[in-house]
């Protein structure tokens, strides 16, 4: 359908005003909200994800597409039933204790949300005990840990230990990332997943979902 294709293309290029108008138009013309979501918004983000992975789209472009998708979803939401939006998983995400850097973490949170995860961002400088509490309170099945500094990276290990102590380790997949983190560090501390950048993080999370 030409209108859904237009929506898809406008999400991809981040044309918010056009998407808002066209999503409304599609609903007015009788297209179901599920179809607009699946064939318009989600289809667009699938293309965006692929283009990001192929290094054809840059982060600011991806973010604008994600924000545009969210805006379109805002119009659809009243027309969607609870089961219409498939939730990939519930993610608690934050930056570890001692580290105040949040840009990478925010980026991953935004992209996870646009990829269909229910994301709870618990902020920066989060202690191991608080991470465990947030996982429990939110009944999360994913935990994303971020660190930019080589000095705060060891706090990831302590956060995993806190989950263990709280008896929560079995219920969450722990994903780690940040400039100094690598796969062998992730393996060494017993994390379930590592990604080198935000695009890869979404892929890893989807694989583990």
């Amino acid at each position: 359908m030409a209108l859904l294709d237009d929506i898809k293309q406008n999400v991809e290029v981040g044309n918010r005003d056009a998407v808002l108008a066209q999503v409304q138009q599609a609903l007015d013309e009788g297209t179901t909200a599920q179809d607009v979501l699946a064939q318009g918004l989600i289809a667009a983000m699938d293309i965006v994800g692929a283009k990001m992975e192929a290094e054809e789209m840059f982060i600011p472009e991806v973010l604008r597409a994600a924000k545009t998708m969210e805006a379109g979803l805002g119009i659809l939401r009243p027309h969607l039933a609870v089961g219409d939006v498939k939730v990939q998983g519930k993610v608690v995400i934050g930056t570890v204790k001692g580290d105040l850097h949040d840009i990478g973490k925010n980026l991953v949170a935004m992209l996870l949300a646009s990829a269909g995860f229910d994301v709870v961002d618990v902020g920066i400088n989060v202690t191991p005990a608080d991470f465990a509490k947030h996982v429990k309170d939110n009944d999360a099945n994913f935990l994303g840990l971020s660190a930019l500094l080589t000095t705060t990276m060891p706090m990831m290990k302590e956060t995993l230990a806190a989950l263990e102590t709280a008896g929560l380790r079995g219920q969450v997949k722990v994903l780690v990332g940040g400039a100094p983190v690598n796969q062998s560090f992730a393996d060494q501390i017993g994390a379930d997943g590592y990604a080198s950048d935000a695009g890869a993080a979404i892929k890893v999370a989807k694989e583990l979902a």
């Binding site: 982060i59 080198s196 935000a198 695009g199």
Partner: peptide, 12 residues
């Protein structure tokens, strides 16, 4: 020690 970041990955 400021620099640009990769707009592909966010890495400095």
């Amino acid at each position: 020690t400021s620099s640009i970041s990769s707009m592909m990955t966010g890495d400095m």
